[in-house]
Computed example of a mutant assay.
Amino acid sequence: MDFAGAYSADNLKFLLDGLYITLIVAFVSIILSFVIGCVIGVIRYAEIPVLSPVMFYLVELIRNLPLLLIIFFVRFALPEVGIKMSLITAAIVALTIFEAAMIAEIVRGGLTSIDKGQIEAARSSGLSSFQTLWHIVLPQGLRRMVPPLVSQFISLLKDTSLAVVISLPELMHNANIVIGHSYSYAIPTLLLAALIYFTVNYMLSVVSRKLENKAV
């Protein structure tokens, strides 16, 4: 084990460059998947004719596919039909598709957990279906969704490492390159990568607990 060589200035900078790509991909994917997932979740909750069933089958299809397959499809299959994108864009698109389906189910579950009596009371007081959803159901549902949403975001951050299969220069990709220079770098490099993932994910967990406590 060569800690000194593995943690040289050049190697550390290279790993941090990979971390930067990881965080960029994760951040953009989180924002996009949250927005898209919320929209799909609300559509499924609202039971809109035709649209809701279509969303149901689409979500179930994506949720039951491995993320790795979706990454390969976006990176290698879509260019065959003229849809070409950069490595980072391909990773973001694949992660967004997969995570949006997961988040849609979290959103739908959170909304359906709201007591029906509150909805009936809101409707009887003169609120429309949309007003009831926006002012009564959604605020309470979102508070209940915080823990599972953050858990999903943590999973998304870890799943960025799967993009190593398309040579995205993220943390694990760069870690593999460092290890390739010398096998004596393997344990130090992997320990550092593990520490980085743990630190970032632990910070997300702390934020989740604080948000959950405020919601109570």
Rank of each mutant, 00 (worst) to 15 (best):
M1A: 03
D2E: 07
F3L: 10
A4D: 01
A6L: 02
A9G: 01
N11M: 11
K13G: 14
F14W: 10
G18Y: 11
L19R: 09
L19N: 11
V25P: 00
S29Y: 03
I30F: 07
I31N: 01
L32W: 07
S33E: 04
S33F: 02
V35N: 06
V35H: 02
V39F: 06
V42L: 08
R44K: 14
A46K: 08
P49W: 04
L51N: 14
L58F: 15
V59N: 00
E60H: 04
I62G: 04
L65R: 07
P66M: 13
L67K: 08
L67D: 11
I70W: 00
F73W: 05
V74I: 02
R75K: 15
R75A: 10
V81D: 09
K84F: 14
S86W: 09
I88Q: 08
A90L: 06
A91E: 13
I92Q: 00
I92L: 08
V93M: 12
V93W: 14
F98N: 05
I103L: 12
I106R: 06
R108G: 08
R108A: 01
I114G: 05
D115Y: 07
G117M: 01
G117D: 03
Q118H: 15
S125I: 02
G126N: 06
L127M: 12
L127R: 07
S129G: 07
S129Q: 14
T132D: 01
T132Y: 00
W134P: 02
H135R: 12
V137S: 03
L138S: 11
Q140S: 07
R144F: 15
L149V: 13
Q152E: 13
S155K: 13
L156Q: 04
L156T: 11
K158I: 01
T160W: 10
V164L: 15
I166M: 08
I166T: 05
L168T: 11
E170F: 00
L171V: 14
H173D: 10
I177Q: 12
V178Y: 03
V178G: 00
G180R: 15
S182G: 08
S184N: 02
Y185P: 06
Y185T: 06
P188C: 08
L190V: 09
L191H: 03
L192A: 03
A193F: 11
A194G: 14
L195A: 15
Y197K: 05
Y197M: 11
M203E: 03
R209M: 11
R209P: 11
L211Y: 07
E212N: 08
N213M: 09
N213T: 13
V216A: 12
